[in-house]
Nucleic acid binder design. Structure first.
Lengths: 249, 249
DNA sequence: CGTGGTTTTGAGCACTCTCAAATCGTGTGG
DNA sequence: CCACACGATTTGAGAGTGCTCAAAACCACG
């Protein structure tokens, strides 16, 4: 959820937002034609001149950085409604690839900047998105810095659950189009640890597999506790959070 | 280095910057009087209404989040020239404490927003700072996600070295006003691991202690290699980076 | 010179990783 | 429709990095 801002998520942050009316920003992307990006294909590469911004119309993207010896760090997943590149200056800081067959619209950075500069209404919206990106980045740092495997997985599942339920869906099934390797590279774990941890959650009755790329949330409350979030916007009691932790019960 | 933007650092990112002339943004902070914050004192708390922005005039701050069972994550250190709160909306997303005796100036968010809104010259600068924050956050995510203890320490020392050498100093001594615990909470390690890793670096002749809160960089090139940065702006060869890694040589 | 906090050092452990193999799932071709 | 093949995922065993607990050393400060 980094390097992008998702509307549903914005609705759920504690910060101020502008109700639920459609964003003005997205109107900028209405004009250009839809482009298709096949699963696995790249949209752009880290280091490329950042000449365009993209709106995801349909499908999912992963954005990631590769470090010297090939290790990959996924800094975020993008879904429909997300906009890529708001926080960029001259060059892309990360690469973007389609996870599934994806449709995007693009506008040039130049046009975007011009529109935003001329519209006092758009500017707060851009600013709000940047702030949401920063907040998401901070949450991710907390996760990567101090959470164990179970807490990372639960935090991730919970975030995905919140995202889809905001789209109006009320069932507790989340779809995870990305592979286990993607999840691992996003959460700073290995594919095996992701798999093992999910198996444990299944055995505990917290989640249940629902097809290859879907998961049913059986005990949402348990997920919240196990996520071990900071006490910012969730009202876990400290005792429960402690109980939920593996290593220091 | 999150939630703030440091001028010297901005000069060294690959992104565009505005040369070395003093920032217009900082002019906003010229009027208000200097306030003193004693070492250990709080400037504001996570969750508080974010009514002010601060400029660090002298000294250092740590900004951090606390999660449910007391674990602390330091998301950044602030030094003179840094501005706190640009990426904030209604509430502080983190707490801020003085590491040393510190001097700051404050202006209200309202005044700040008004100034920025009225000045087309200031807006790109604010935007650039936000982008630098995001870039720093991403680097930190890479560090926390995929780097081992030695790489984290070396990345940190290198960043500090770059920061101070940008202030015009040419010696290879960096001052670390923060405690080992601060460094540990910033790098996602324990205090013991930080200490042990620094001892090893000393034994290898890469660094040398220079007083309680200072460190001399003896082999800067070794530090760069050991930092295991992504190949974005440093030109390490892949082989060297592999050699430098502990766990997979 | 004593006291308190910080840092270092040590020993053992645990969580996650690595390496390896088995299983599952999907798509393809006979 | 079934068999096969390939990739993705799961499961297992063992090792390692970093953590925990503990104590000693160091330093600043009164």
């Amino acid at each position: 959820m980094l390097q992008t801002v998702n509307f549903p998520q914005a609705k759920h942050t504690g910060a101020a937002f502008l109700g639920s009316e459609p964003s003005c920003l997205q109107a900028l992307f209405k004009k250009p034609p839809v482009e298709r990006v096949a699963a696995g294909q790249s949209l752009f590469f880290e280091g490329d001149a950042a000449r365009h911004l993209f709106e995801v119309v349909e499908g999912s993207l992963r954005i990631f950085k590769i470090i010297s010896d090939g290790r990959r760090v996924i800094t975020g997943f993008l879904h429909d409604g997300d906009i890529v590149g708001v926080s960029l200056k001259s060059h892309y800081l990360y690469s973007a690839e389609a996870i599934t067959d994806t449709k995007v619209r693009r506008i040039s950075r130049k046009a975007f900047d011009a529109e935003v500069d001329n519209s006092p209404d758009l500017r707060p919206e851009v600013f709000a998105r940047l702030c949401d990106e920063m907040a998401a980045a901070q949450e991710q740092m907390v996760l990567l810095s101090r959470k164990n495997a179970a807490e990372r997985i639960c935090s991730f599942l919970l975030k995905e659950l919140i995202r889809v339920t905001c789209d109006g869906r009320t069932d507790l099934v989340i779809e995870l189009p990305m592979t286990r390797l993607d999840i691992a590279d996003y959460l700073g774990l290995t594919i095996e640890t992701v798999s093992r941890t999910m198996t444990k959650l299944t055995n505990k009755g917290v989640i249940a597999p629902a097809g290859r790329h879907s998961i049913r949330i059986v005990k949402r409350s348990a997920l919240v506790l196990l996520a071990g979030n900071d006490d910012g916007y969730c009202d876990n009691t400290v005792e429960f959070a402690e109980y939920a932790r593996q290593s220091r019960h």
